[in-house]
Design a protein around this nucleic acid. Structure first.
Lengths: 232, 232
DNA sequence: GAATTGACTCGTACAGTGTACGATTTATTC
DNA sequence: GAATAAATCGTACACTGTACGAGTCAATTC
């Protein structure tokens, strides 16, 4: 298993150490930099979604020409990669490192993960396509260590990790994409009612109208962790 | 919760009932039809992936002009919707309807679901964006009925369904996107080894090199079902 | 100081993309 | 036949990512 590589490398071999800024004028606009490009890309993605990120528009927001971006970045895919990883950083739980509440730690990290992605709804759909940014590896490493310390057998460890991964990814992608306007919601309800004779059970349980995403995520995660808990 | 609507409707209000085919010549090429368009779109998607579906190329394969498609279809998104749902049909398990093996039934349906999507790897990424095709609703209805009949409490039913949904979607999207060439695989392994001091645990467990996707899917599903099983 | 180098910026151009529009061809109905 | 509807498709347009090469400007070397 592995993630794809963007293939292209930016030409700039190394960042110039400290900002030179020797002159007196602070430049008409602040100078381009990878950091600024990535931060602005995240803004643009948040505002306009995955399809809204266009190189020309990104350059506009940066007060630069479109082709200037290509000095710092190999191609558009690399912008996606960098934006994605920049959004997935995790600083551990608030309290000390040496907690014995492994379950609480797992839940905390996964809830934070989901929350981070929902703050940037384009990120969930992107993640499975390019999985190996350092921040994601960090989370997987932490998960791995915690479960291992909790007594999950080595033979079950990978399965456990992937199960949690699958659950979080699936839940978050689904949630991010079902975030609809009121109009969409009304139309959907109407459509479903029209079909209710074909789907009586999900109609009765109001599966598609249930709105408690956070609660459902939390409860389902509990079920999964129940199943994963090492049998004594 | 609801799925987005394509927005556009094809102009053709209704299919002509029976193929007229009154003439004697079978036409230079067979005539365009929604069915043929969708089937060819699936072929093209299978061959070239999500990005490979271009209206012009689809028309080429059909022996038609690009704009002819728009008589049958509102826009490109609608092609995606139709292709997706056409790939997700489910005919129940082989044996009789009235099995008391609810768990076997659930596993069968979910394995089949995953297999269907992996046969068309573009489908997994598409599904969460437009969830409400009739074939998907059928699967959810079946799932709902089976779990309910198995004794899952009404209060837990929606959570259980979404948990399984999340798991299947996450697993399948991940699997479909990690399907790499040998070169990619080698590159990834090398990269990971280079970073092994940062991620010792996942390196040791060979998390990212484990290849038994089917087994992992099955085992994780068992864990999840363990957690979901109604307590006696 | 002059010349050279390298980091960086960006205008122009090109080969695509989805699809609006309207003309055209073919089938159906009177 | 004539009139209408169903279906096809050529052309055109606005917009995309990015290749290419010319330009700017500061630091470095003589």
């Amino acid at each position: 298993m592995a993630a794809k590589d963007s293939g292209a490398e930016s030409k700039r071999s190394r960042r110039t150490g400290a900002s030179p800024r020797s002159g007196q004028e602070p430049r008409s606009e602040s100078p381009l930099s990878l950091e600024r490009i990535v931060a602005t890309a995240v803004e643009l993605l948040d505002a306009e979604g995955l399809d809204g990120l266009k190189m020309r528009r990104l350059a506009d927001r940066l007060g630069a020409g479109a082709m200037s971006l290509y000095w710092h970045v190999g191609n558009k895919e690399e912008v996606f990669d960098l934006a994605l990883d920049s959004v997935l950083e995790y600083r551990g739980p608030a309290q000390a490192d040496e907690s014995d509440d492994w379950r609480g730690e797992v839940v905390h990290m996964l809830k934070d993960w989901r929350a981070s992605m929902l703050r940037h709804p384009w990120s969930a759909a992107l993640l499975p396509r390019r999985a190996l940014g350092p921040n994601i590896l960090n989370r997987l490493e932490l998960l791995s260590r915690t479960l291992s310390g909790a007594g999950v057998a080595d033979a079950d460890l990978n399965v456990a990790i992937w199960s949690l991964w699958n659950y979080v990814i699936g839940a978050t992608i689904t949630r991010a994409n079902f975030d609809l306007s009121e109009d969409d919601r009304a139309a959907a309800q109407q459509r479903l009612t029209a079909l209710s004779q074909h789907y009586p059970t999900i109609e009765r349980s109001r599966l598609l109208l249930d709105n408690d995403w956070d609660g459902a995520f939390r409860k389902g995660l509990d079920f999964l962790l129940d199943g994963l808990s090492p049998r004594r």
